[in-house]
Computed example of a mutant assay.
Amino acid sequence: MDALATRPDSRLAPRGAALPTWDPERDDTLVVRQVRQETADVRTFVLAPVDPARFAYEPGQFLTLDLDIDGQRVNRCYTLSSTPTRPDTVSITVKRVPGGRVSNFLHDHVAEGNLLHAVGPMGDFTCARHQAEKYLFLSGGSGITPVMSMARAHLDLSTRADIAFLHSARTPADIIFRAELELMARQEPRFRFAAICEQDAPLEPWHGLRGRLSLAHLEAVAPDFRAREVFVCGPAPYMAAVRDLLKAAGFDMARHHEESFDFATLAAAEPDVAAEVVADAAAPATGFRVEFRKSGRTIDCPSDMNVLEAARRAGVRLPSSCTKGLCGTCKSKLVEGTVEMKHGGGIRQREIDAGMVLICCARPTSDLVIDR
């Protein structure tokens, strides 16, 4: 992580021509323009290209940060809380998690002027691909970020969509973007916001909806929720509870959309592969040998199976998230051997040229040695 010297900001000058679109294939460097404290344990990091450029993405998509932490490369995904209608910057909103390697690094060491490296934006969780006249946005905790991006985009564009936004938090002090959401609700009559809190804050009793999300809460905020397009993001147990609730209420689940991988798990410390116990002693009899150099583990991997799946079956835990070749979390150095890889954008061509692979979508075509 580097620092960028203060210099005049040419973005404020009149523009004679349109700015280029930021392309991480050409330059993956972003400068931290601002750090905002949202709640006691949540911060927003506003990022911009070093040289003026604009971002093009769909609301709800994510960036993958490429970080150097204590001399080790770590990739982490963060959904963008910003909106593409304000294309000169993007922002990620990060909750500090006890023991979380990356979230604590960002909170403790990243400040205005620092340089970060990233790839993206990318992802399928976006209202841009499921447009409707009425939406219901449901979020829990820091899962608010992608639906906040969607809400900001709709209000900026004055789409006239009817939006009900229901957020679950521990206490009123933990409601991320509370002031902005309440302002949005006052300014736009088609936008309704409500929060559900489990308990009072130390200095603020809560007089709104209480407990955990229920059918009564849905009917109070959006009695016509069965006619809405629903977007859900939050911890895995929260999303599972929402699925069960909607199904029991007779909701058409074809109109239900949730973040397909749990960003909350990425905030935890990277697991120690060497400490894992083999869970499946019946390793495949055919295929190729895969050696994980750092852990000293060797597994068998069939030629028709990706390396990540074979590792999981052998009881080896490796950092991963989307399992679709999108997020870059499982990016690893291929020291020896060859693979067949069909990815979804989570790795750049120059990284492939340098011997990096995404093990979630890489199938061996020879014996492998991987630097994990």
Rank of each mutant, 00 (worst) to 15 (best):
L12P: 12
L63C: 04
A111P: 00
V119H: 07
V102T: 05
V90T: 10
D88Q: 09
E58R: 09
T89Q: 10
T39R: 01
F55K: 07
D28R: 09
W22D: 11
V90I: 15
P20F: 10
P98D: 06
D23V: 04
R36T: 14
P20Q: 11
R96G: 02
L47V: 09
L65Y: 04
D23Q: 13
L106G: 00
P49G: 07
P24T: 15
L30S: 06
W22L: 14
V97K: 11
F62T: 06
W22P: 12
E38S: 01
A111G: 06
G100A: 03
P24H: 14
A53M: 02
Q72R: 10
T21V: 14
L19S: 13
T29F: 10
P98V: 05
A13P: 04
F55Y: 11
R36W: 15
R76E: 06
E112Q: 03
R96F: 08
T93Q: 09
G16Q: 15
S81G: 14
L63P: 00
F62K: 00
D66N: 07
A111F: 06
V32Y: 09
R101K: 11
Q72T: 01
I92M: 06
R86F: 12
Q61L: 00
L63F: 03
P98E: 11
V90A: 04
E38D: 13
D68R: 06
R73G: 08
G71E: 15
F45G: 01
T83K: 05
L106F: 01
D70C: 04
Y78I: 05
T64D: 03
L115C: 09
G60M: 00
L67G: 08
L67P: 11
W22F: 15
A40Y: 10
T83Q: 09
E38H: 00
G113R: 15
R7L: 12
L106D: 11
A18T: 15
P49M: 07
P52T: 12
P98M: 10
E25T: 14
R101H: 08
L65S: 03
L65V: 05
V94N: 06
I69T: 05
T21A: 09
F105A: 04
T29C: 15
G16W: 13
Q37K: 07
P59N: 06
G60R: 01
R11N: 06
T85N: 13
D9Y: 14
D27L: 03
P8V: 07
Q37I: 11
D28G: 13
D9H: 15
D88C: 08
